[in-house]
Write a protein that binds this DNA or RNA. Structure first.
Lengths: 338, 338
DNA sequence: GCAGCTACCGAAAACGTTTGCGTAAATAAA
DNA sequence: TTTATTTACGCAAACGTTTTCGGTAGCTGC
């Protein structure tokens, strides 16, 4: 069985490889008659151009990379959904890499991407990452990068985020208006910029409503879920007066539900909870969870579109192309006034 | 700025390209002394081999493809997690494609994969797919394929699934033992083999317990969620005697919760529900949902391992390498006896 | 009849890597 | 000493595609 490539096609058609290639790319330097002959044979033999030869020659892979902390999370899953959609529409392929929020793994992945495997990168940095040299070094190879959600402030490029400050502010204000006196903030991580924005919103909302800020009401989450449960239990036992919780990330809200059930705290009677979440079943929880829901699909799609525009036009991605999308606050029973 | 490739390295080291290449691949045909010199410069200049040149020459891309219906679904997200883990351990990259359960899209994706972009394929077929010619044709190019969960019976290769028949049987039996008289089955799709297995388990369990089988109690789900809500509402209104529901897929269980809430049916008092689901928050629902939970992460990882073994050894994947993993039944309040 | 077009096509050089083969020197065996 | 064998490296041909640089026709307008 002979391989079906440009050479074999050219031989069967009695023409040069160059002509076959041009015919398939619909070049104007080839007559309609020969184009038709070439196309007929190509489809008959199910010809598909070798992606690697093409990529090598054109220095273009038609592939983008996505580096994210995890995929088993509705936010990132939806984001990938949007990314894949945008990529498919432009004929691009999507390579996926998971850091599991591990700095060393992130560095290793980013280093490997220097091999020219991708034309552009979409990234949401690991929560443990503090040094961004690996990313900067990648950007210096002229690879376009767009950050989404967990952005890296130090790298000058476009970022797609949500209005995290306002969301933190509104969530906190919502708890205040529901009657909460002592509101804790369960933070993602200390060094993520989105976490800092949400934290600032929380602080400003407290201040605007004349509440004192107690530093021991802010709990930075960790990677491990079991560990988080322990930390939250500790917090609720140390400060039994806490009657409101703002969780900056879904899994912390879920962990809080478990802890409350364990400690016999009634939601929303004893304690009210609101959290960032893209959980579809939020309205079916007991009680239904009030959420700040990010437009995850749109974040992914818009980030990909910005990246792909830059890739296609061979222009760098500018910080000015950054986008801020709006989250939505859904009031449900977990913050109901009683 | 000169590019950093084998040629530039060779020039700076005053040796041939071949030697540099061999040194970096740790060939025994190169002295330790020169290896050291080469490696030193390579790391100093942050050399990363061009993936496409290498792939072209070796006819190996170190990349596998994953074709799945969707990613915004905890089962598939976990499966990808397992796949990525196995791939990373073997130094492979993961390309991801979503069919959105659309046959035409699946065909188009599979056709594109003939370009040699991947060394192997992991696939969960779209629920609408009835003709498998596109997959067979891809397999004829000697590309190793491994199916997982939503397998394709007609293609002779390895498949990684769960014990779907037994799970369907046990779920149905569980409802019977909880006191249900009229049990409906909400099916994924008529032409998926896993759906047929679950359905057969449902039927056999009914028969084993002397229950008559009413064909109008079996509802094949559709793609659209809104549509499913309508169908389920219709079913519950047409057959008000239904007091047990076995949902073959998570979103049908969720839709059933919504319908029950809307119609004022109390779970589990009026109607009991069990469903296939990987929802983490299942225990926090109102009421907590009884589930058959598939080992999604393991399914993905094992499928990837089988595929990668075949790829590395350049041997075809045999149907005899198929694997059946066990699902777990979690009893929760949605099927509690009252 | 001739320069200047256009329309079509082919030869060949890239892209960066891997690898079969050749070969010189060094070492071992005879 | 001569003859194998090993060690360490270079040359050059691939892999399949794209693209530059032509080149040959057949036109047009003068």
């Amino acid at each position: 069985m002979t391989p079906v490539n440009l050479k074999s096609l050219a031989e069967q058609l009695n023409m040069s490889i160059a002509t076959v290639s041009r015919a398939l790319r619909d070049s104007h330097e080839v007559s309609e008659a020969t184009k038709a002959r070439v196309r007929a044979l190509a489809t008959a033999l199910n010809y598909e151009p070798n992606a690697y030869a093409s990529s090598l020659r054109r220095n273009l892979s038609k592939t983008i990379g996505v580096v994210i902390p995890k995929v088993a999370n509705h936010f990132f899953a939806l984001a990938i959904n949007g990314i894949e959609e945008a990529a498919r529409q432009s004929g691009y392929h999507v390579l996926i890499y998971l850091t599991h929020d591990d700095y060393a793994r992130e560095v290793s992945i980013v280093q490997h991407l220097k091999g020219g495997r991708i034309d552009g990168l979409l990234m949401s940095v690991a929560s443990g990452t503090e040094d961004f040299a690996h990313i900067k070094s990648l950007q210096e190879t002229n690879l376009p990068i767009v950050f989404f959600d967990r952005v890296c402030a130090e790298v000058p490029t476009a970022k797609v985020t949500t209005n995290d400050y306002e969301s933190g502010y509104r969530a906190t204000e919502h708890l205040i208006q529901a009657g909460c006196q002592h509101i804790a903030h369960l933070l993602i991580s200390n060094n993520l910029s989105i976490g800092q924005f949400r934290q600032q919103g929380y602080l400003d909302a407290l201040q605007a409503h004349g509440r004192a800020h107690a530093p021991d009401l802010v709990l930075p989450g960790v990677m491990d879920n079991e560990q988080n449960v322990v930390l939250i239990r500790e917090l609720l036992q140390r400060r039994p007066d806490i009657d409101g919780i703002f969780a900056s990330v879904e899994r912390l809200a879920i962990s809080t539900y478990h802890v409350c059930r364990e400690l016999g705290r009634r939601i929303p009677d004893d304690i009210k909870i609101i959290g960032f979440s893209n959980l579809e079943a939020a309205s079916l929880l007991a009680p239904p969870l009030s959420t700040i829901t990010q437009p995850a699909y749109d974040i992914g799609r818009e980030a990909a579109k910005i990246l792909l525009r830059a890739v296609e036009k061979k222009k760098p991605v500018l910080p000015s192309q950054s986008l801020v999308l709006e989250s939505t606050l859904f009031e449900r029973d977990s913050t109901a006034r009683r």
